[in-house]
Simulated scan of single mutants.
Amino acid sequence: MLLIVDYFSGAPSGDIRNNINFLVRQAYSAQTGITSNSRLSAPSGFTEDMIVLCEQWNQGSNKSNGGNKWSDPAPDGSVMYSLEAYARLSQTRYRGFGGFYLDGDYYFVKGPYYNLRRCIQIANEPVVEEGE
């Protein structure tokens, strides 16, 4: 069994750290102003590997690209959007990523749930340690 606490703006107290398994951060970049790696951090008393970052994209221009424009570029130098950023961060810093209102991605030009499926693949890419 897992005990998972979900939060949006007010972070839970670090006093509960030993009583829970994970925190789900409803990061929703458009609503919280999170648009870069430097704007993310674990709440006081928690470590980043306890956090699952979630994005929503169900309306406006962000529904066709996987969230909102991220200030940091993708590894290939292209524009990166928040869902992809959360997937990439789940490889190195955070426990995972998720989405809310995923139906906004169903009718994407490149195929059903294109952004979500691509980000699942990104999160599952093997991480190569330096010196290997």
Rank of each mutant, 00 (worst) to 15 (best):
L40Y: 09
S90W: 07
A30K: 10
K63D: 13
I120L: 11
E132A: 09
I20N: 00
I51Q: 10
I51T: 12
S29V: 08
Y101W: 13
K69F: 06
C54R: 02
N65P: 01
A11Q: 01
T35W: 02
E130M: 01
V109C: 10
G77C: 09
W70G: 00
S71M: 05
P112L: 07
T47V: 11
G14K: 08
I120S: 10
S44T: 11
E125H: 11
C119V: 08
Y106M: 12
I34V: 14
G45Y: 03
I4G: 06
V24R: 11
R117K: 12
Q31K: 05
S61Y: 00
A42N: 13
R39P: 00
M80C: 02
I16D: 06
G14W: 05
S61L: 00
I4F: 07
D6V: 15
F22V: 07
L3W: 11
S82V: 15
V5L: 03
S90D: 07
I20S: 00
N58S: 15
L53E: 00
L3C: 11
R25T: 00
D15E: 14
S78L: 09
I34T: 01
Q121Y: 12
C54T: 14
A11C: 00
N115R: 04
L23D: 03
Y113L: 15
F8E: 03
L53M: 07
D105T: 06
P12K: 05
V127I: 14
F46C: 05
G99D: 02
